[in-house]
């Protein structure tokens, strides 16, 4: 790695993503590949859910994954976040290999200690929020940085309050998840993920459990993060949102990537018949 690159890296660490409230966050550095997934295969029994998927995400990119139910898009996120084990392929975060596949086709995940470090690179926002109901909003956000990363409690609390402010939930710090609307809960979940200062944030259908009004609150936040060049991969059914927020759109169907490209190309001028068909069903 050359010196210039090193410098940019250090600057990025000095201003952690998602924490700064200034208007211009970190500059996107497209040289930097955050996630590299190659030849990913995954089956559940006889059902081949992912068939040789390649996905690479660079710093500052916002990638939306669209496609019909059962196309494998959620499974792809779950494989990227190690909630599911892949059957074949390679997953690399920032030059650190999480898995390798041997010549005989057997997948090996790296050791526990290295895995723990790699896991710090990403966060995941779930469709069902999965907040901890017995913890207050502030506690939900602070617990992992304090307990897992062993960071200073006062410092974490300061950051957590800044994050809540940013989510428009400054007055909800002491509430419990059950006292919040779905949209508010999802914003807390986003704050909880951001508090870990991930390099990349995954969203697994973040608005599918919300009604339209609450969906907008959450999408606004994601858009704000995109403006700050937060690296994100979003599985979504919100087509106009995907078109507006992403640098790249991936259309998946039947466990393969059918088409991918900039949103104006995929939405405006799809090349594949299957893509046209799918998008048409949304226009009706």
């Amino acid at each position: 790695m050359n010196e210039r690159n090193n410098e940019t890296l250090q600057q990025e660490y000095a201003v952690p993503e998602g924490i700064q409230d200034g208007k211009n966050g970190n500059e996107p550095n497209r040289e930097r590949v955050i996630l590299q997934m190659s030849n990913i295969r995954k089956s559940f029994g006889d059902l081949h859910v992912l068939k040789n998927i390649d996905l690479s995400v660079r710093h500052g990119e916002v990638v939306s994954i669209i496609g019909p139910s059962g196309s494998g898009k959620s499974t792809l996120l779950r494989c990227a976040t190690f909630l599911e084990k892949i059957d074949y392929g390679e997953i690399i975060y920032l030059d650190r290999k999480a898995t390798i596949t041997s010549h005989s086709g057997k997948v090996f995940y790296t050791g526990k200690a290295e895995m723990k470090e790699i896991k710090k690179y990403f966060g995941l926002v779930f469709q069902q929020f999965n907040l901890f109901p017995h913890h207050s909003v502030l506690h939900n956000i602070m617990d992992a940085p304090v307990e897992v990363l062993k960071r200073d409690k006062k410092e974490v609390e300061k950051e957590a309050r800044v994050l809540l402010e940013k989510m428009g939930l400054a007055d909800k710090a002491d509430s419990y998840p059950c006292q919040l609307s779905g949209g508010q809960q999802q914003r807390v979940a986003i704050a909880r993920a951001l508090a870990m200062k991930p390099e990349i944030l995954f969203f697994d259908e973040p608005t599918s459990a919300l009604d339209p009004e609450l969906t907008i609150e959450v999408l606004k936040i994601i858009r704000k993060l995109a403006e700050e060049n937060m690296t994100m991969v979003i599985v979504t059914h919100e087509m106009s949102f995907a078109a507006g927020v992403s640098n790249r759109v991936i259309f998946m169907d039947g466990g393969v990537i059918v088409e991918e490209g900039p949103p104006d190309k995929v939405f405006g001028d799809p090349k594949q018949e299957r893509t046209k068909q799918f998008l048409k069903s949304y226009k009706e």
């Binding site: 723990k116 779930f126 901890f132």
Partner: peptide, 18 residues
């Protein structure tokens, strides 16, 4: 207990014991 609680904890890096 819903599986989502385990998954959220895993993503956040909690050990099994924690």
């Amino acid at each position: 207990m819903p599986i989502g609680q385990y998954e959220a904890a895993e993503i956040l890096g909690y050990s099994k014991f924690a």
